[in-house]
Simulated assay, not measured.
Amino acid sequence: MIRYPLAPLAILGAIIALGITPVSAQSSCGPREHLVKLLSDQYKEDPIGIGLAQPGQVLEVFASSNGSWTMVMTRPDGKACLIAAGHNWEMVTKIKGSPI
Rank of each mutant, 00 (worst) to 15 (best):
W69R: 03
D46C: 02
L39T: 01
M91L: 08
K79H: 06
G67T: 05
G56W: 10
T21G: 03
M71L: 15
W69T: 04
C29H: 03
Q54M: 09
W89M: 13
Q57A: 10
V92W: 11
H87V: 11
V23K: 07
E90D: 11
R32T: 06
L52R: 08
Q42K: 12
V72A: 08
H34P: 02
G49H: 14
G78A: 07
D46I: 08
L39N: 11
P76N: 10
R75F: 10
L82A: 01
K79C: 08
N88W: 06
A85W: 05
D41M: 03
S65Y: 02
S68P: 00
S68L: 13
G30D: 06
A53I: 04
C81W: 06
A53N: 06
V58E: 14
C29I: 01
K79F: 12
V92M: 10
L38P: 02
C81L: 12
V58Y: 04
D77E: 14
I83P: 01
V72G: 02
M71C: 12
M73R: 13
A84V: 00
S65W: 03
R75P: 01
E45G: 03
G56D: 14
L82F: 09
S27D: 03
S24Q: 02
A63T: 02
L52H: 04
T93P: 02
S40A: 15
P31R: 10
G30F: 07
G86E: 11
G49I: 04
S40L: 07
E90C: 01
S40K: 10
S64R: 09
P22Y: 11
A84D: 14
G56Y: 12
Y43L: 06
T21I: 05
K44D: 08
W69S: 09
S65I: 10
P47F: 03
L52P: 01
A63I: 00
L35H: 02
G56V: 07
R32Q: 13
V61I: 15
N66F: 12
P22L: 07
K44W: 07
A25T: 04
V61C: 09
A53P: 02
Q57L: 09
V72W: 03
P31V: 04
Q57P: 00
K79G: 04
D77L: 05
G56H: 06
M91I: 10
H87F: 13
V58F: 05
G86A: 10
G49N: 12
Q57G: 01
M91E: 15
C81Y: 06
V92Q: 12
F62K: 00
D46K: 09
V23Y: 05
T74I: 07
W69I: 06
G78S: 10
V72T: 03
C81G: 03
V36A: 15
F62G: 02
T74D: 07
V58G: 05
E45P: 00
V36T: 11
Q54H: 06
A85G: 05
R75W: 09
P31F: 05
G49C: 02
L39F: 07
K79T: 15
S64K: 03
P31D: 14
G56Q: 12
K44T: 00
K44Q: 14
L82C: 03
E33F: 09
V92T: 05
Q42V: 07
G67V: 07
S24A: 14
V72Q: 10
V58R: 13
M71Q: 13
S65M: 10
L39Q: 03
V58S: 08
V23A: 05
R75T: 12
S28D: 11
